[in-house]
Amino acid sequence: MKLLTDAKLVTESGGKRELDAVLGRCIQEHSVEALLSLQLLTRDDYGGFTMKTEMKRAAALCLLTFGERGITSLVEIFEQEPRFSNATLILQILSQLASGEYPSLSSDLPLDLAELVTTHLPPIASISQFAETMLNKVVLSITDEDDLNSWVGVTLQMSFAFQGRNNFSSTRKLLSAMALRTLTVGIPIIEQFEELLRASPNDEPALQHFLESNPLLLDPLAVRVWPRPDLHGKKEPDFLIQRADGTYLVIEIEIPSKSLITLSNQVSAETSHAIAQALDYRNFLQIRYQSAQQTFPDFRVPDALVIVGMENSLNAEQLETLRRENEARTNLQIIGFDFLARRARTMLGNLTHGRVSIERFRLF
């Protein structure tokens, strides 16, 4: 443990020269002890020493030679000690990596050490997406808005200092992470929903309540939602939704633990029952169209949506059965609860990152 012992000595009484020597040994050894030493050197505040920011940054840059393990270490340092010096350093490095570029090494490391680090860095393409995920995680984990605004403000200033005012790529990544906090259906809501599906697959009242509180999970285009509307005292669907395009959707939910497609590749009894109910509600509203128009703004005969079971529990043949069932039906779709979370994550990525695949193709 000689390397770790020397790293501790640097934090207690060493200067920049001693730090650079230990950093070089860490890069060359590239061992578990080296990783632990770099974590210590990044975490420590060096007794408030004037050069602490430069020393912490130098160690943090060397951590990047460990790829995803090094990035995870940076996030863990912040989680364990969420103070100003750690937050601004880690936000700046993660936003730079997320933009598809490594931070500059020449201003923080001597030339020989910078060259050594460069030879050990993994390709940026292999870690940029992971860095963006970790950046979002860090920003979303900060509960104090004053701390967040202060840390992000200083990080943006640091970005200008290290990148120049003509390069806003890392700034955009940081602002995108900030935007995730304000979205109605962001990562925290999606993760809460996924946890509810895992922990309470039989609790329909809890699911109903969660979806009432977060109706955009049911339909991203929803503008009006009526939970359990009383239809003349005779019918009560789980949800009726009006979409932004003026169309309506009647929804019947079951529970995640119920079967969606049987092992014999047939629609399950639970799914068939939910389909029958959803179509019954649709027909009921269609027959009473004029009455519905007086209650629901610009009412149209609704499409129907059935949500039951989990699609990730289906094998390839069962998924094919589900696809054929949906293709064969008009004005009705059958999905699993996990489809809602998967769609929300896709839309969130489109909104915050603009990652839509555009491909040129001609069918001959």
Rank of each mutant, 00 (worst) to 15 (best):
P227N: 12
P227W: 09
P227K: 09
P227Y: 12
R228L: 10
R228E: 15
P229D: 09
D230G: 04
L231T: 04
L231F: 08
L231V: 04
H232V: 05
H232F: 15
K234G: 04
K234P: 01
K234C: 07
K234I: 13
E236N: 12
E236H: 12
D238Y: 05
F239E: 02
L240Q: 03
Q242V: 00
Q242L: 00
R243C: 08
D245Q: 11
D245S: 12
D245W: 10
D245V: 11
D245Y: 11
G246Y: 08
Y248Q: 11
L249Y: 00
V250T: 11
I253G: 02
I253H: 02
I253C: 05
E254S: 15
E254V: 03
E254F: 03
I255E: 06
I255P: 01
I255A: 10
P256L: 05
S257Q: 10
S257F: 05
S257R: 09
S257K: 09
S257P: 01
K258N: 13
S259A: 13
S259K: 14
S259R: 13
I261P: 02
T262W: 01
T262A: 09
L263P: 00
S264E: 06
S264M: 00
N265P: 02
Q266R: 14
Q266E: 15
Q266G: 01
V267Q: 04
S268C: 04
E270N: 12
T271Y: 02
S272K: 13
H273C: 05
A274S: 14
I275L: 12
I275T: 00
I275M: 09
